[in-house]
């Protein structure tokens, strides 16, 4: 089948091939963006639910006003932000410390610990819901945001350790040696040599912790059940849908409010995220 070289070269630049690629890109864009577009479209349309128009038939911002005032999404956003930031900070610190241990030191049980870190990620959340519910209750943290942060840190930690381990391992040992020779203490070396080099990895894992906390549903549903004021966005949307199940314009407005902050954040950090992911995945 393979033709000779000159033929292939022309084939590659042929308009047909370019066209094919263009079609693929177009299809991909439609698939990725249509749900996002449809969400925005419905959220801005006073007629959402009455007609399926591909642009707002009767443009309005009323849905947003409704959702932010009566829907209570202002509070839910604040709660989610607190929970997500709390999770990011605590889990990043713990994951970084642990990843240095597993990447830099050879010690007994190292492999077992790595294995455990990988395995606990496999545990389905549904298995943890009942015991963690009881545990958080015993800590008197039900219906509180702290209770959720505690749980989310545990959920985000294994991935963080696993990801950061690659970054730490990629920092040349010579740099550390040099720091020692300069008489730097181990702690000092950690902050001045290691940390800056691992920063991109921290960005990547922070994003993951943030998303975990922002999106999580089942724990929020069980642990915040009793207090609407402490609802996070995911559970707030669930509850809003229960009350206004046919007001699609408002549901889509609420969905947009939840999605857009994350989306902007994602697009801004995308380059760093990509490099972070690969460096973590393709461990040096």
């Amino acid at each position: 089948m393979s033709g000779n070289r000159p033929l292939r070269r022309t084939a590659r630049r042929s308009p047909l091939r370019q066209l094919g690629k263009g079609v693929l890109v177009a299809l991909l864009l439609v698939f990725t963006l249509f749900p996002v577009y449809w969400m925005l479209n419905s959220s801005l349309d006073a007629q959402a639910g009455n007609t399926s128009s591909f642009w707002p038939a009767e443009p309005t911002l009323d849905h947003y006003v409704f959702v932010l005032t009566e829907g209570g999404f202002g509070t839910f956003l604040r709660n989610s932000l607190l929970v997500a930031l709390g999770t990011v900070v605590v889990s990043s610190v713990l994951a970084l410390l642990a990843s240095v241990a597993v990447a830099r030191f050879r010690f007994k049980m190292r492999t077992q610990i790595l294995m455990m870190v990988l395995i606990v990620q496999m545990v389905p959340l549904e298995a943890l819901v009942i015991p963690l519910f009881v545990q958080v209750r015993d800590l008197q943290l039900l219906n509180t945001l702290i209770g959720l942060v505690v749980v989310y840190v545990a959920l985000a930690l294994p991935f963080g350790i696993w990801m950061l381990r690659g970054f730490v391992a990629a920092v040349p040992v010579e740099l550390e040696e040099a720091a020692y020779l300069d008489g730097a203490s181990w702690g000092r070396m950690f902050w001045s040599v290691l940390l800056p080099l691992v920063a991109p990895g921290l960005v990547a894992t922070s994003i993951f912790s943030f998303i975990t906390a922002w999106n999580e549903f089942i724990f929020a549903m069980t642990m915040l059940g009793g207090a609407t004021e402490s609802y996070t966005v995911a559970i707030g949307l669930h509850s809003f849908f229960g009350i206004h199940s046919n007001d699609w314009g408002a549901i889509m407005a609420a969905s947009t409010i939840i999605t857009v902050p994350v989306m902007i954040f994602f697009i801004l950090v995308q380059r760093r995220l990509a490099s972070g992911l690969t460096a973590g995945a393709v461990k040096a």
């Binding site: 607190l82 929970v83 930031l85 900070v89 219906n143 702290i146 942060v149 004021e229």
Partner: peptide
Amino acid sequence: AATGALLLAATTAACGGGGD
């Protein structure tokens, strides 16, 4: 400090959200 502040903020927020 940031951790402390956040946890503090979360606590107060949580206490505000009663239901207990």
